[in-house]
Simulated assay, not measured.
Amino acid sequence: MATQTQTIQQTDPKRWKALALLCFANFLVMMDSAIVQIALPSIKETLGYSQESLQWVMSAFLLFFGGFLLLGGRLADLFGNRRIFNLGVIILIISSLFAGLAWSETSLNVARGAQGLASAFIAPAALSLIMLLFSANPKEMGKALAFWGLSGAAGGALGIVLGGVITEVFGWRWTLLIYVPLSFIVLILSPKLLQKSVRRAAGRVDYLGAVLVTVSLMLIVYGIVMAEQSGWQSFNTLSSLAVGIVLFLIFLLVQAKKKDPLVPLNILRRLT
């Protein structure tokens, strides 16, 4: 694997262009979590949200993004990083189209959840591609990761500003529809700039582990979301957090016994 990584690094003159594309995708992911904030009053008026339910325009995205992030990284390792990256971009295009054309609370919430799922595939797959492209040169790796971090910070910061401008000029729907053409650009350039999919792990999908970790993380994120609405001492908050933590502990026990775990626990030993 080290030889393969080094070969890719030495023979890929497009790695900096590829990094620019991956950073742009990361920018879109982080922007997606913030761009609708200014548009919330307009969304409420158009689709008839209550003040209490309006938070789910944001929370649906965060719930699926946080819940599927670990699974997205594992799928990239098993099935190929570029393949999962492109799958995430395709899901983002479709979900953004439906979100921009949403006709009800439910349709927008579902579309926002699908956007979160797309981002959970894009982010770890893109980071995996960066690690592969620059792993043979520590100095270039440091620069690449710095650009990656800056792109995410810029997406989160500029998302609010751009959301306000777009909402004022074009209407709130374009804060979501804008991802359709931008994501198409990423999808078109991907096969030209990114290396073919590389599987970084062998084995099968740990379906039990995938279900446990996804449900546990979604419950934990849901508990945090509910804490903002109902308080940290509410039954919904405490029960969601408690069940989520218990399921996550069960997930760790399952991983310790699996031949092909979703998360090899020896990684944690290396970090400590």
Rank of each mutant, 00 (worst) to 15 (best):
M1K: 14
A2Q: 15
T3R: 09
Q4G: 07
T7W: 02
K17G: 14
L21A: 00
L22H: 08
V29S: 06
M31C: 01
I35Q: 02
S42A: 15
K44L: 00
K44R: 13
Q51D: 15
Q55A: 09
W56Y: 06
F61T: 05
F64G: 02
F64E: 07
F65G: 11
G72N: 07
G73R: 00
F79K: 06
I91T: 15
L92P: 08
L92A: 01
S95V: 06
L97Q: 08
L97F: 15
V110Q: 03
L117V: 09
A120H: 07
A123V: 10
P124R: 01
A126M: 03
S128L: 01
I130Q: 09
I130K: 05
I130W: 10
A136W: 06
A136Q: 11
L158P: 04
V169Y: 12
W172N: 05
W174L: 07
T175G: 08
V180C: 09
S183F: 03
S190F: 00
P191S: 08
Q195C: 03
R199Y: 02
D206R: 03
Y207P: 09
L208Y: 12
A210E: 13
V213C: 07
V213T: 14
S216K: 07
I220V: 15
Y222M: 15
M226C: 08
Q229S: 14
L238W: 10
I245D: 10
L252Y: 10
L253V: 13
K259T: 15
P261I: 04
L271S: 04
